[in-house]
Design a protein around this nucleic acid. Structure first.
Lengths: 222, 222
DNA sequence: CGTTTCTCTTAAGGTGCCCCTAAGCTGGGG
DNA sequence: CCCCAGCTTAGGGGCACCTTAAGAGAAACG
């Protein structure tokens, strides 16, 4: 599985190359947009990891050029948190997904995996417990086949719980995952979201573990 | 599930040992690279948690030596954020994963779990004595395969006892662990919990040692 | 740009469960 | 036979969690 990594920052690129290699990809690492276009015009990749701020030729320009050729190679965009506009424009131009800096390597590989899988027309793996199903790619949830509308927070929370069935997630752990590393909430927001989830999905799915946190048993809701 | 922890910082090591033990692992804690090599050459571990900055023998050197012997024991590296090069070299040398300092205990246990599972497709670590099994991650207890409902205190108490099978735990020791360093109880609360545990798990599991404390024999309840 | 809708947080009040307490009981050891 | 450590039982209080409601803020709409 061959991947093109386009990143000018030496440190970041180095880390990514190693990490992605570790994850089982063959990684070609280029430092500027010009080189990226050259590579893409002659070679074929399973996916492209594309930084936006590049020398010689901007990342968005590379993306636009790629899509102009009707090349459907999956593209994962790396963008800083304060450049949301770029992200939006990137998605408009045909990016398949984006990751905000500073990012976690696991997140990159996870999204990349999803991207490649999607590109090959293979269905996304869904997380299922009992009659509840969650589709991470579509961000959709069904209960006994019926679609259930969840807000973003609710979805993320449920996602976390379903990824860790049979494991108790402490309140701390959940909050740290939901609220990105800062501005921790000091109220019972988490409880409220849990409450909403139970209301929409039934009371049996999420078990309260007093004094610790929450858990969804793998064999819940008969 | 036996784990080798190699960490020279006393405070950090202490915290890790407690946390990992809490997570259900049997932890051997060594303070320098020399000792780690000694241990690894004679004993077998499910995984190694390895700090890089070590006395006598550097962590990377230990890792290199280990891989040189074609030992595939999973290795989780602890590294400071400003030593990315080391991390990279570590991965090159065959580390399986790394965690940046300062880290979260939950993250360590999560990665460790993934690592061990990856290494030989095994499920969660459990503490087992006779027909009693305790799963720290799920905070669940079974007796002869049947789920047993325990209250938080009961669970914590049982957890402590099972972590120290064949060792007599004094009333003092138990109370200090259960009640976080303050607000000691001056009554027989402990006895009450023991009573409840016996009621739910059978009278043979927990042995009373008159005048000292309690103990669960490793080969209890046939 | 005002209006509307939707989501998330905050806060307050309620409730059920757990845990401590205490007091009487039991049995082993001196 | 007595004493004391541990066992047993029951109840009340407190706290963790639940539930509900409403306001702030952001996104969507015209």
């Amino acid at each position: 599985m061959r991947i093109l990594l386009v990143e000018d920052d030496r440190l970041l690129g180095d880390g990514l190359q190693v990490g992605l290699t570790q994850a089982g990809y063959a990684v070609d690492w280029l430092r500027d947009g010009e080189a990226a276009v050259m590579a893409l015009s002659t070679e074929s990749f399973a996916a492209v990891v594309l930084d936006l701020g590049l020398p010689k030729r901007d990342g968005l320009s590379v993306l636009q050029w790629l899509r102009g050729r009707h090349d459907a190679t999956p593209v994962l965009i790396l963008t800083a948190r304060d450049q949301l506009e770029d992200k939006v424009r990137g998605l408009d131009l045909g990016a398949d997904d984006y990751v905000l800096k500073p990012f976690d390597l696991d997140e990159i590989t996870a999204r990349l995996r999803a991207l490649v899988r999607r590109a090959h027309g293979r269905p996304e793996p869904v997380l299922a417990v009992g009659e509840i199903e969650l589709n991470p790619a579509a961000r959709s949830v069904t209960r006994a086949g019926q679609a259930v509308e969840l807000t973003p927070r609710e979805f993320d929370l449920l996602h976390l719980l379903l990824e860790n069935t049979d494991r108790v997630l402490t309140r701390r752990a959940l909050e740290e995952q939901l609220y990105t590393w800062n501005e921790a909430v000091d109220s019972n927001a988490l409880e409220v979201h849990i409450h909403h989830l139970r209301k929409k999905l039934g009371n049996d799915l999420i078990r309260t573990v007093r004094g610790v946190g929450y858990m969804v048993p793998a064999g819940a809701t008969p």
